[in-house]
Design a protein around this nucleic acid. Structure first.
Lengths: 331, 331
DNA sequence: CTGAAAGCGCTTACAG
DNA sequence: CTGAAAGCGCTTACAG
């Protein structure tokens, strides 16, 4: 990819009548530069339309100006789950404030994963944000082995102490919602969980059980709409008397609503349904979904903050963010 | 972002017993390298775990190994429209085959746009893919003025001859769907369009009018679910006798279904509804949506191909891809 | 505060 | 086919 001739630091130095070293110092914080030089350089930059060549800068500083956003998900989920979009947006914005660019990598297939792993561990990138890691995913171990600074969204099962992460209080959120179902007078509670190799899956299940007890029916879902629909159908077979269900994500909950409609159950009259995420999906269903809000903007900011800390060599730390119950018509 | 010491081309050369130039030649295609040297270098690369430093390479070649994906959309759309995800996935995959990384930039606000423009025009990136450009967007002019290779998805209104682009045959697709509504015996046709400063908006409207005539009711939408819902409500006020509506996107169509349900109309008995995109949304509605398929994988591939051509200095060309009518329960 | 100089890791004519 | 050398655009001790 060829580029036309761009002004370099040399052009700026010539225009400002100082040395290249001085220009560089000005560009890198302005320390040890006299006001006069600073002014001259400032003008010269405008005049020449100079923009730093990041490749040259990175070569000498060994610092990258980009981080990888690794989406380790089968494409079905990526295609329908709005949470990714919100997270992508939030982290892009938060990184922009630090002049860091986000490199999107998608590791859906095994082959993808290998490519992404090679790329990220080869030092092109300052660090990586791992989205929705499943326990047992080899990627995370490869990154750790290569000393790539990495953070995850959601508790990284099995790596809680070696990787910084940010998560909402999944267990408490699940408790809030399940308690709410009980307070609505429901007695036959059930749940559809996320994948049980993710923290969102296990922690929300734990919260549900804290309130509903260990005997309540459980079906595992996969965070997709179709998965929620199937899971709900199975739940109704398991126990037709169910009168409330806590679903581990809004998208699955919207699938559950379809299954309930197909089974002739009214929501919330016959069965109350609660979701998790409080995404736009919750507003597009009929009836609108009661849900647990995940503050994505805040999560994104914290995720970026942790990654930058990790890059600077800080010890891993975890951030847990409280959830909020949003009550709508489905319960 | 500090990195630990990584092996350089020098280490490989030493291990292989050749000069650094020879290693570089081997790495860049292997021309003018004897089989013996090649073998030795190959082994040395494995031994040392060498990976090229892209910053150093880019510095000397003036070639970037990344392109920007510019999403110039208000965040509401980004958050709910699955088309972006599909496109993001498709282009990432297609670029990966060329060892090019995708830098995601989001230009929702005016301030974002300025930042993105500065970044992309400053040569950090080999080229840019502009997604959903609206006519009058200054970004496109800035990129052109700076000689940044750029391609758009959808016809770039006002820049058809200066920018390579790929698009489905929007007009023909709209015709197909509208004709299908007529063939179902519907006589009171109406349409909800996309934004009329986008090619998808105007071209699909043109296709609808080709079949339905100039007098049929039209309301402009904004490609969001809420927008589709509002537009449908307005359409029913405009003409309560409507018995079929072509909606310019599946997401808006799903909003239209909500409005129709609220108005007590049955779909398809009272009103037939057709969408556009054939996205996952079309399968999640009740009833499932008849729609026009956009072959996103193919679109992504062509988009990447055109961008790489543009980067290589090829003259702008346009690719139009045929659409396909997918009939489901909503019509 | 400032300039001269070395060096980051690579590619690419240039000789041979 | 191959090595020595220049140079890509920048930063950063080092002297002064």
């Amino acid at each position: 990819m060829t580029r036309r001739r761009r002004p370099t630091i040399h052009d700026v130095a010539a225009a400002a009548g100082v040395s290249r070293g001085t220009v560089s110092r000005y560009l890198n914080g302005g320390h040890h530069v006299s006001p006069g030089s600073a002014k001259a350089i400032q003008r010269a930059v405008l005049e020449t339309g100079y923009v730093v060549n990041q490749h040259a800068r990175s070569l000498v500083t060994s610092r990258s100006h980009s981080v990888a956003f690794i989406l380790a998900e089968p494409q079905e989920r990526l295609f329908e789950d709005p949470n990714f979009n919100v997270l992508l947006h939030g982290t892009t914005q938060a990184l922009a404030e630090h002049d860091i660019m986000l490199l999107l990598t998608i590791a859906g297939s095994v082959e993808d994963r290998r490519r992404v792993s090679r790329y990220v561990t080869s030092g092109h990138v300052g660090g990586a944000m791992l989205v929705s890691s499943h326990s047992g995913d080899p990627l995370i171990g490869e990154l750790l082995a290569r000393d790539v600074p990495v953070v995850t969204i959601g508790r990284p099962l099995g790596h809680e102490h070696s990787i910084p992460y940010v998560a909402v209080d999944d267990r408490e959120g699940a408790r809030q919602l399940t308690l709410h179902l009980k307070e609505r007078g429901r007695t036959r509670l059930a749940t559809i969980t996320g994948p049980l190799d993710t923290s969102g899956g296990v922690d929300r299940l734990a919260g549900f059980r804290d309130i509903a007890g260990p005997a309540a029916p459980v079906v595992e879902g996969d965070y997709t709409l179709a998965g929620g629909r199937n899971a709900m159908a199975r739940l109704l077979e398991l126990d037709p008397s169910i009168d409330a269900v806590f679903v581990g994500s809004d998208l699955m909950a919207s699938g559950a609503l379809i299954a309930l409609r197909e089974a002739g159950r009214r929501v919330p009259e016959d069965v109350a349904v609660g979701g998790f995420d409080d995404s736009l999906v919750a507003l597009s269903t009929e009836p609108e979904l009661t849900s647990i809000r995940q503050p994505w903007t805040q999560l994104s900011r914290e995720l970026v903050r942790l990654l930058l800390s990790a890059i600077d060599g800080a010890a891993p730390s975890a951030v847990t963010i409280p959830t909020e119950l949003i009550i709508r018509q489905s319960t």
